[in-house]
């Protein structure tokens, strides 16, 4: 599966890393999104969908299976 991210909109909340820790992480200081796996396996689909929904800045879009 795949998705798009818009790093410029990231507010560093880190909810993506909490929702889908195998796919997303944060920078140490400002907490900006780091993508660990740009093409995660399908088992991660719901977690990635939820990360997109939970993100308070709509950074993760276009989530596709």
């Amino acid at each position: 599966m795949k998705f798009d991210i818009n790093v410029d909109k990231c507010v560093g909340a880190g909810v993506c890393a909490i929702a889908a820790p195998e796919v997303f992480d944060q920078n140490d200081d400002d907490g900006i999104i780091v993508v660990l796996d740009p093409n995660p396996p399908l088992e991660q689909a719901q977690l990635v969908h939820d990360a997109a929904t939970r993100c308070p800045a709509a950074v993760i879009t276009n989530v596709q299976l």
Binding site: G12, G14, A17, I18, Q26, N27, D28, D29, D30, G31
Partner: peptide, 11 residues
């Protein structure tokens, strides 16, 4: 402030 990763551990 300025400690995103440590913050998540404390969470």
């Amino acid at each position: 402030v300025g400690a995103a990763k440590a913050l998540r551990q404390w969470r």
